[in-house]
Design a protein around this nucleic acid. Structure first.
Lengths: 158, 158
DNA sequence: GTGAAATAATTAGTCCTGCTAATTAAAATA
DNA sequence: TATTTTAATTAGCAGGACTAATTATTTCAC
């Protein structure tokens, strides 16, 4: 097995582990992985719009509406008509939503962080460099693809 | 931003780029990402069973049945009762299925391989080591979780 | 300033993926 | 042989995603 194979297999193991832990965690939080993701995005600023979420997550506005509906019915967020532009609806996180976010940390983190901390300094540095290298390799296409990516997107949660 | 954050952000960029390229590619191949994944699994050995796929992909047999239905109606695979154990149904890839696989290489590969090849030897080695390190960190849980993982799973496609 | 175009959110309707529970058939075992 | 286990399917359900159409508002060109 050559290096390309090895690295692809490793990437797939990573993707898969992430996917599975996402499911588990979302379940324990009473939300699905996607719903949690939306809540995280809203929680970053505390308030946002459907449009902003849809751009940030590269998902249609209709999908966002459906997801926000779920969060609203779970009491995680509330909708509120914007006063500056009345076409817009602001979506605000509630105390309960914040609490949920705190109780349900990012699925990746749970698995990853404790192990990462145990590593030696040089290895941590190497890992970060390697991951960033791969990320750059993979999402360079994205940058060419469209004007959707903005500065905010560089810190994207998913 | 500390190293943990950096590496988590990088991981998310990787996940996201993969997800998006998976969508695009599956679309151009006339199959969804999941269907393509199933076809890849079948293509590895040329022939397998629903049970094997469901274990390999950690998905219920009912889901596999539905996915294989799609592939059958697309002419990518055929079903054939096993003669050694008549409870089983062998799923065989067709020429057309093979062709589709060739035309639609793994989404990850498309993006990744050409860039990987351009890297210097030492950097390739470092990347592989780093990725495997992360993969091990993340899917160690899996190994404890159940007896589902077998040797075959270590080469899993997804 | 009015009318046309653009923007924001939603609704309606569809597809795909996944699940569980129940069913059918065959094999293994006690 | 009778029971249990295994393999696949069917039926029915839910979540997440999409497009197209609708409703309000805002912007902009004339």
């Amino acid at each position: 097995m050559d290096r390309i194979d090895s690295s692809l297999v490793a990437l797939r193991r990573i993707l898969r582990a992430t996917e599975m832990s996402g499911r588990e965690l979302a379940q324990s939080a009473g939300l699905t992985a996607v719903q949690l993701r939306v809540l995280q995005v809203i929680g970053e600023t505390g308030q946002t719009t459907a449009k902003a979420i849809s751009m940030r997550m590269h998902v249609s506005q209709a999908t966002v509406t459906a997801l926000v509906d779920k969060l609203v019915s779970g009491g995680m967020v509330v909708r509120e008509k914007s006063m500056t532009d009345r076409r817009q609806t602001n979506i605000l996180i509630t105390d309960r939503g914040r609490q949920t976010l705190e109780d349900a940390p990012d699925p990746l983190q749970q698995l990853y962080v404790q192990r990462f901390k145990q590593m030696e300094d040089w290895e941590q540095a190497m890992l970060v460099a390697a991951l960033e290298r791969v990320a750059t390799m993979l999402d360079a296409e994205d940058l060419q693809a469209g004007a959707i990516l903005t500065t905010g997107d560089l810190n994207k949660t998913e």
